[in-house]
């Protein structure tokens, strides 16, 4: 009985939050005239798939691929660098850890606009301007602070005795890190990975500035529908809805890792 009530509340909360997206999906099935009809209609209209058709037959699928590549590359990079860094920053290992941690944060505190031109010049010098590598590296720089911070707290909780015991048994530090610390810390790691993926997925300013026509990510392509004369709401909504699908898939994958260590019904 209690379980049913909790499901009901959870579903209500979820609906309250995703209602705007449901409405967006409705818009994506409308023609322009229907969108601006007053009063708005939820169901009483002839749905059309034209918006989707024109998107999927165009270059949009390529942009989805670009977004996937940029998201996965930047996340992989953030984890590859952020996890060892977080592990090393654990309080008992590094006395100046607090200072370094604050330093990592500084980068995230700067308004992105101030970093735009430096990045542009940097990638131009490196000859990477317009490539997905440039976009990925920029996105990596945004998520690294979160990965480092959020996983450090987890590593902090790994009991020192276990590591010590493993080391006495002859395990190298790398093995301790990979085989003991990471599995114990997997929940924050999964959450950070999900966040890093989404950071790249929805980032617009840098993707728009550093990409080329071939390497646009989804947000850059979607921005093309927000015109100087009018907004193509139908296509914009359809593109946004399509863009949600792979992101939800990636997040679902991360979720499985997030909770796999959980004892069933641990929190009744």
């Amino acid at each position: 009985m209690k379980r049913v009530a909790i499901y009901a509340v959870a579903l209500t909360v979820l609906l309250a939050f995703v209602a705007p997206l449901v409405w967006l999906a409705v818009i994506s099935l409308k023609t322009r005239a229907q969108i601006y009809a007053d009063p708005s209609t939820f169901l009483g209209f002839d749905p059309t798939l034209d918006n989707y058709r024109s998107l999927l037959t165009g270059r949009f699928p390529v942009f989805i691929g670009n977004s996937l590549v940029a998201a996965m590359a930047s996340t992989a990079l953030a984890l590859a660098i952020g996890l060892p860094a977080a592990y090393a920053l654990v309080g008992r290992r590094l006395r100046a850890g607090g200072l370094v941690r604050s330093g990592v944060l500084l980068f995230r505190m700067i308004p992105p606009i101030a970093l735009l031109l430096p990045y542009y010049l940097l990638f131009r010098t490196a000859g990477l301007l317009g490539s997905l590598a440039a976009v990925s590296v920029a996105h990596f720089a945004f998520s690294i602070a979160i990965v480092t911070w959020m996983t450090r707290a987890g590593f902090e909780a790994v009991p020192g005795e276990i590591e010590e015991a493993a080391r006495i048994d002859g395990a190298s530090p790398l093995r301790v890190f990979l085989l003991i610390a990471i599995p114990i810390t997997r929940a924050p790691i999964a959450a950070s990975a999900i966040f890093a993926l989404l950071t790249s997925w929805n980032e617009f300013l840098f993707a728009a500035t550093l990409s080329s026509p071939r390497t646009q990510t989804i947000p850059v392509a979607v921005a093309g529908f927000a015109g100087d004369v009018y907004v193509s709401w139908g296509e914009l909504a359809a593109a946004t809805v399509i863009g949600l699908v792979p992101a939800l898939g990636l997040a679902a994958l991360g979720q499985r890792w997030l909770l796999s260590g959980m004892a069933p019904g641990a929190f009744k």
Binding site: L14, F17, L21, F204, A226, A247
Partner: peptide
């Protein structure tokens, strides 16, 4: 439910 709840974060803030 948790995955769907993340959906608002998947859209660029501009949009």
């Amino acid at each position: 439910i948790r995955t769907l709840f993340l959906a608002p974060m998947m859209i660029a803030p501009l949009f």
